[in-house]
Write a protein that binds this DNA or RNA. Structure first.
Lengths: 220, 220
DNA sequence: GTCTATACGGGGATAGAC
DNA sequence: GTCTATCCCCGTATAGAC
């Protein structure tokens, strides 16, 4: 029974995926070398070719693993029994939580877009469209039917605007720090949570009916 | 495709910058080779080393040229004699116009963020912060003082939320196409302009006072 | 399964002719 | 200023020992 040393519970394969996720995210596909990944994972670089056909296959498997995680996490905020406005607020918070706990995700997604026009991630994005994005659009439609949200916004566009705030903040984080007047690279942790709260509020305000008769609890 | 043989007007140097802008934006720094740039520019690749010290210097000069263009363009929407809400709407439209006419810009900015945490673009982003971003924040503050905008949003955060919509749409364009249910890569041109209009409306709705009636806000 | 050693090609950069 | 030719490193991927 081939058992790795007690120190690493994770299989070598998982270690390789972990290391490649980090390196591909921070350096990009082309700049990351097989040898670097092996070094980071603590295995010999030739071993990568035992588990994965080539560099590209390794990349795809890594990406798929990560996005699956995000989808299951994001759906958790949509599948709850709460009114649409609360669910939307919860979704934005949850999006922020995930993105800032997994900074690799926005980086990798963005690289996909710019490097290949999303070609390598098409299947995954389609999955995303059918689950999380569709759920968010439905939520907005539901709020519109309930007169909680204004009806003169296209739900899909409103969904993109909602998502975009936290997504952009995460992607452009280094620039955001500078824009907000901080020293390079060091954005206080409170700013991040503050912005998540702001983003939820901003989206809800934009969606609120022009005549603000509708119920706005939030008496905290 | 290579440019036509050196038309007298554009210097070889400019041709090289043009080609590198396109290639760095679409392929990234590491994946773009000196030889490709030379080919695209219609000059011999060794000539790049006559005009630029090395690949990195070429990259920086290219980036600086592009961002200067954007700043001067963006400021045009802020320096007009109109009420804040109209100026904000104009700004978003102009941002969209520039970004979709210069698709290289969002790609390069995003690469900067992910590749080097913005390190190579720090000076330029600082410039951006001091001009365009500051202008946008001022605009929002002015609207707040004039009671046109709600006062319980941090101007800097509201500015980021405003910018983020179009920026994210441009960055994630391939994914956005899929999310909206189109065939891969082919987002109708009308969708782009429609979204720009939506983004301006969304931001103005979010900034609109909750209800001008005398309801006093709780201090939070 | 995991390692050592190496082939093979490609890319950045330089020398030097014109 | 612009080109031809070339050096040399480094990265992917494979062969094969253990």
């Amino acid at each position: 029974m081939p058992r790795p040393p007690a120190s690493d519970t994770a299989s070598r394969r998982e270690l390789i995926l972990d290391a490649s996720e980090h390196l591909f995210a921070t350096q990009g596909f082309a700049s990351t070398t097989i040898k670097q990944i092996g070094e980071h994972a603590g295995v010999n670089s030739a071993l990568l070719y035992y588990y994965f056909a080539d560099k590209d296959t390794l990349y795809r498997e890594m990406l798929q693993r990560l996005i699956r995680q995000m989808i299951s996490f994001g759906m958790g905020a949509l599948d709850v029994a709460e009114p649409p406005d609360q669910r939307l607020e919860g979704f934005v918070r949850r999006q922020a939580g995930f993105v800032f706990e997994h900074p690799n995700l926005p980086k990798l997604m963005v690289r996909e877009m710019t490097d290949h026009e999303g070609a390598r991630a098409e299947a995954i994005i389609t999955e995303l469209a059918a689950t999380m994005f569709r759920g968010l659009c439905e939520l907005i439609r539901e709020g519109q039917r309930a007169k909680l949200f204004r009806a003169d916004l296209r739900p899909e566009f409103a969904a993109i605007s909602t998502i975009s705030q936290v997504a952009y903040f995460a992607i452009a984080r280094p620039a955001v720090g500078i824009l907000l007047g901080h020293k390079r690279g060091h954005l206080p942790a409170t700013t991040v949570t503050d912005f998540a709260e702001h983003a939820a509020k901003f989206a809800l305000a934009a969606l609120a009916p022009a005549r603000s008769g509708a119920s706005r609890r939030k008496a905290s």
